[in-house]
Write a protein that binds this DNA or RNA. Structure first.
Lengths: 144, 144
DNA sequence: GCTAATGTTTGGTATAGACCTAAATTATGC
DNA sequence: GCATAATTTAGGTCTATACCAAACATTAGC
């Protein structure tokens, strides 16, 4: 995660990656196109891009599998989302609203900002929409 | 400001509007193109758009002047920026970093979220990069 | 009050991202 | 091993942003 600023992927691509990560194993084009309600061909193109950037391994006609890099990045995306949602909930939003609203702008928030927020919240382990892992956080030796 | 969610303008357009608002009177195409380092024709096109949406009054060859609607909206943009910057500074960012980082994602943050943050910070009157006005805040009778 | 310099707009082009349909290709289930 | 289902390819649309060159309008100098 060194040299990562969290803005490498557009919102849409990041959502695809998150979805692929959450599915675990091999994900089929149709799964993604159904989930996001877009045409399969749209998915194929985006997948090719994600593969070109090394976030997934795409074997045509057989689906995609997340790469090591993609896995790390997806974990960061999830950690960012949950930290921002938690922050919003500390600023008066209901858990649901916090989670929903975080989705709208999280894609534009730097890793360094996320790390600051994480520290200011005392490296919390639980957010309003799930646990927060700290293996991609600046405070963890593994990341240094 | 009723019916406004803060996402009406793209980041670029909102920046143009903010600049025009800050300049006060009539602003010339060249001023804007110099400020943002883009070609004058790019500015003209964007200005036409802003005029079409009612944020500015554009009299060709004579510059633009902000409209009533634009003025209100610009005030909201500034209030949003300063509240988010203040929030970031409360989460460990230096004043400079808070202001800079807020710029990168503020464009995607809803008015309702801004209002919540405003309330949670106790409707502050000063941020890290300038005063915060509350005439566009949900807490003010003028807005109801 | 005309001309030259300056400022602005018009029209055309480009890129990136996201999306689509239709046609072609590959895989899979009997 | 063939029909059907899944997937990719080809070719296109649309929006936002940006650029340039050429045409045009305005202003300033004389």
């Amino acid at each position: 995660m060194r040299g990562v600023d969290g803005l490498e992927l557009s919102a849409k691509r990041a959502e695809y990656l998150k979805y692929i990560f959450n599915q675990g194993d091999v994900v089929r084009t149709t799964d993604i196109s159904t989930h996001f309600s877009v045409a399969p061909s749209t998915v194929t193109k985006t997948l090719e891009d994600l593969a070109r950037s090394g976030f997934v391994e795409h074997s045509p006609y057989h689906g995609v599998r997340i790469s090591r890099r993609g896995r790390e990045y997806a974990r960061f995306l999830i950690r960012r989302h949950r930290l921002l949602a938690l922050m919003l909930s500390r600023h008066g939003l209901s858990p649901d609203a916090a989670c929903r609203e975080a989705r709208s702008f999280e894609w534009y928030v730097n890793k360094s900002v996320v790390d600051s927020i994480c520290a200011s919240l005392g490296h919390p382990v639980m957010s309003v929409c799930g646990p927060i892992e700290h293996d991609t956080c600046c405070c963890c030796p593994a990341d240094r």
